[in-house]
Design a protein around this nucleic acid. Structure first.
Length: 273
DNA sequence: AACGCGCCCTGTCCGC
DNA sequence: TGCGGACAGGGCGCGT
């Protein structure tokens, strides 16, 4: 995405901007972003609902409504969820869904590639789905020992392991690469070959890089915007992602790019073994 | 049953 | 200037 820090930034904006508002009506312009629902069903179930809270699970934005409804937004690669009062007219070129609020503003869902999905659940249905996601990396439940135990059980490249949302919720390719760089672990390394000390370092670097990215309001490579339409500020702090051919900040070696199961991985050949 | 792969779709950039 | 190919932060369904 939009990975965990970007979703979290949007959630914090939305909490402030739309909690307590009522959805007066919904317009669906691109039906293929709706998951398991026709535009008619989607509109009907949301009309008149009050926004009780906004939260995050993995890379998903969780909007809890009255009448036992939960609206879940996954931004895919290019999804944006913004408040209409924060964007200039014409700035959004691919608006897929608009939610008109009772104060006259709109929540706009815009998505150039339409990989994102909006899905409505009952609270019970969402609880079931929620249980399929792995541990939240910023929660106290995410421990070095648990990470080590998980890594031991798999032979996939550790970069791939980190991308599995059922193992760790919210880490995507960008932050996986950054965390592995900081931990000194090569992305291609088989997960089960990590030592206990490496797992402990990786646990810390995952938390550090996600926390720092949240503090900077996310990373904008091209499409990402927060709910106010602003770009993130973490991109100058990326140490390897997108920096093929540049010197390693630590040792000066040339950063390499390689492809692991159809996705780029960036690493320093000297600092990461 | 864990894992890799292809695919969904559009925009942008780069080399020729 | 145009064109083809590679590439992009994600996730699902399928086959092995």
């Amino acid at each position: 995405m939009p990975e965990l820090p970007e979703a979290e930034t949007i959630v914090r904006d939305l909490q402030r901007r739309v909690t307590g508002r009522r959805i007066e009506s919904v317009k669906v312009h691109k039906a293929d972003v709706l998951s398991r629902s026709t535009p008619e069903q989607f509109r009907r179930r949301l009309k008149g609902r009050r926004i009780e809270s906004v939260g995050r699970r993995a890379k998903n934005i969780i909007i809890r409504l009255d009448a036992d409804l939960v609206l879940v937004i996954n931004l895919g690669m290019t999804g944006r969820t913004v408040s209409s009062d924060a964007v200039r007219a014409g700035e959004l070129k691919h608006v897929a869904v608009r939610f008109l609020l009772d104060d006259g503003r709109e929540i706009l869902y815009d998505d150039a590639r339409r990989f994102g999905r909006l899905e409505l659940f009952t609270a019970t249905q969402w609880a079931e789905r929620d249980a399929h996601f792995g541990v939240e990396p910023l929660s106290p439940e995410f421990t070095a020992e648990q990470l080590f135990a998980g890594l031991k059980q798999s032979r996939v490249p550790v970069r791939n392991w980190l991308l599995d949302q059922a193992r760790i919720a919210g880490v995507g390719n960008l932050y996986a690469n950054e965390a592995l760089y900081r931990a000194g672990i090569r992305p291609s390394r088989r997960s089960n070959l990590s030592t206990r000390a490496e797992a402990a370092r990786l646990r810390d670097t995952i938390r550090d890089v996600l926390s720092e990215a949240i503090a900077k309001r996310g990373t904008t490579l091209s499409d990402y915007r927060d709910a106010s339409g602003e770009e993130g500020g973490f991109q100058p702090l990326l140490q390897v992602y997108g920096r093929e051919g540049e010197p390693c900040p630590r040792c000066g070696s040339t950063i390499r790019r390689t492809v692991i199961t159809n996705r780029s991985a960036f690493y320093c050949p000297k600092c990461q073994r």
